[in-house]
Amino acid sequence: MIYVYALVSKLPPGDTLISIRAGKLVAAAARVDARPEPAEAGLRAHDAIVRRLWDAADSVLPVRFGAVFANEAAARAAISAQLEPLQEALELVRGCAQMTLRVAAEEPAEPKDGGPGTRYLRARARAQKAPEIDALRPTLALLVRAERSERKSGVVSVFHLVPRDQTTAYREAVANFRAIVSGPFPPYAFAPEELA
């Protein structure tokens, strides 16, 4: 079986991983005997390899844990099936790190106007915009290249794509804001979901 760790432009010289080419992309992969278990040791091992690649290359698109394929041809087919969005994603993350902010979700008072459809669309738009960090946006505008956010059980996670040499400036910019900041990480949140 083939296990894919990340997509890169090319593997670092001398790297022991297998490279599987599809278009402009190279999948950094390894042969495994079984699907890895999602336990802490396995997650750390996955992350360590992604970080090693990320330290060595300018642009690395991490693949989430568990991308297992029967053979190299199956891995190549899965990547080729969404080659365009993957190539664009690899370009987007070039030279960047992911910084993560976590803030408490603020639920606005239920608006009285509009039908259920309007309310649904409003809630959806809100979920994607993370207005909780609006106060930070003017400060972060020059540091952040892209943003994604998730809203789950009262916590909003905001993922920012920040040039690697700007991560210290980013931490300083958010230091006095009521949020938990972590990073820099390889840009996991900016990889397209579900490769496997």
Partner: peptide
């Protein structure tokens, strides 16, 4: 603990919950 949380969040994408 924070790094374990981020590890799970990043590698598995199961969020903070």
């Amino acid at each position: 603990e924070v790094s374990l949380l981020d590890l799970v969040d990043n590698v598995l994408n199961r969020g903070v919950v």
